[in-house]
Amino acid sequence: MRGEPMQNIIVLKPDFNTQCARSSSKTLLSLALGAGLLLWALAQPTAAYAALGESSVSIARDRAALKSSLNTVSMKGYDVHELTNESGATVREYVTSAGTVFALTWNGTQVPDLKLLLSTYYDRYITAAQAHRTGHHVLSITTPELVMTVVKFQRKSSGQVYVPSLMPSGVTRQELR
């Protein structure tokens, strides 16, 4: 298949559109909920964001600034805010009627920016990840404070994380898709 001498053609280039988007879109800096996905998708700095256990007051801000679309669906007892980037990767944030993010799910090529999305729960993820014995492709955390599943296989990642104590009554993890 590749036994013959060959030349490898090399062209690396940064994404000009991304660079330009940063300089021309001050709104990006104030974007709240989508910041985690934004970093994941576009490597942009961020000033504020919503995350697990935090208020989602800024979710609706300037969705046009995101290369991701934002779609909000109201369910019984909570809202689902879905961010979808250009490659189709999604992050869904589940928000209580009081405005607190109680769960996250994602599906895409990469694990999203968990430091941003997990916020104060990030340290618990670190601790569990250091202690676990399930290898590089699967991580499962089941504690009273945090339930989390991360799968990263080849070019795909999906995951679910929620805070049991913040779950609205009557909501099950099976709904968090």
């Binding site: 399930t134 999906s158 679910q160 099976q174 709904e175």
Partner: peptide, 8 residues
Amino acid sequence: GPAASSQV
């Protein structure tokens, strides 16, 4: 182990 979920 249970390392999958309804989302995964």
